[in-house]
Design a binder for these strands. Sequence first.
DNA 1: TAAATAAATTAGCCAAGGCTAATTTTCATG
DNA 2: CATGAAAATTAGCCTTGGCTAATTTATTTA
Lengths: 144, 144
Amino acid sequence: MTKTGNRSSSAVEDYLERIQELIETKGYARVVDIAGSLGISQASVTNMVKRLDAEGFVRHEKYRGLVLTEEGESIAKAIGKRHRILTDFLNLLGVASAEVERDVEGMEHHLSADSLEAIESLCRELSSNPELLLRIKRSERESK
Amino acid sequence: MTKTGNRSSSAVEDYLERIQELIETKGYARVVDIAGSLGISQASVTNMVKRLDAEGFVRHEKYRGLVLTEEGESIAKAIGKRHRILTDFLNLLGVASAEVERDVEGMEHHLSADSLEAIESLCRELSSNPELLLRIKRSERESK
DNA sequence: TAAATAAATTAGCCAAGGCTAATTTTCATG
DNA sequence: CATGAAAATTAGCCTTGGCTAATTTATTTA
Ligand SMILES: [Mn+2]
Ligand SMILES: [Mn+2]
Ligand SMILES: [Mn+2]
Ligand SMILES: [Mn+2]
């Protein structure tokens, strides 16, 4: 049986998610890019990359490039999906962009598959129901 | 002006929330109670209590009791509210209890006031709209 | 009230995940 | 193709927040 229960830390998830995005958009993910993009020092990124390699999430040749393994990519995709669904959700509710960004970046690491699916369905419903969204936003303005 | 921007760590918030709950339900919060309730060693709790005292969130006399300051209580109340609203939300969506517990315990530390209010309004709306909830749950079952 | 038990604290340890400064390797460019 | 700049790594440090084992203080009970 494949070991499947190993939850990754928030930091590991953030790194993998960002590495995947960089590869997707630029074709590669250098230490310097990851560092800039996460707002972290290059030294810290080098350390983490070493760890991600040791744990089998990336393959890394010193002073050379960086590639996601199957497992690393699968985690990256999963966290990316959680990120998108939560972003979608808070955007639908009309939360301001800067706050959506911060909230999602934290919450995405604490969502079970069930909660994720429930919120996904909720978003589908909300999207196709603009009057409902209006009622919610009105109710928000009243309560403050 | 009062310093108001000092975000507390997740750990600090969890401790304060639990201390407040213990005081509310048992009248006091001993180190041993906090430890048992958070699943953490007594030694670790003693350390954190020292820190919470140093930072002005509790007042603590060695080998004696523990009391929340105004500021500590205010943080505890705020995190308690986030906890309740998120719990409410996931319960409404029909997520299983054990998962609700875990998810909420993590997510509650990453919710801005705006997101919180939006979700609160959403819950009001969902509560008074059982057919909507049904549609969401149906849509959930389909999609899996 | 003395002894046993419970609670709290201290001492010393560890891993995660950051940082800066110094060094090494690679790359670009004249 | 030599050299300066850019990228990456290493070394050494720090804080947070856990842990166990040993000790100290408070409380209960015989
Ligand atoms: Mn994140
Ligand atoms: Mn993310
Ligand atoms: Mn929590
Ligand atoms: Mn909580």
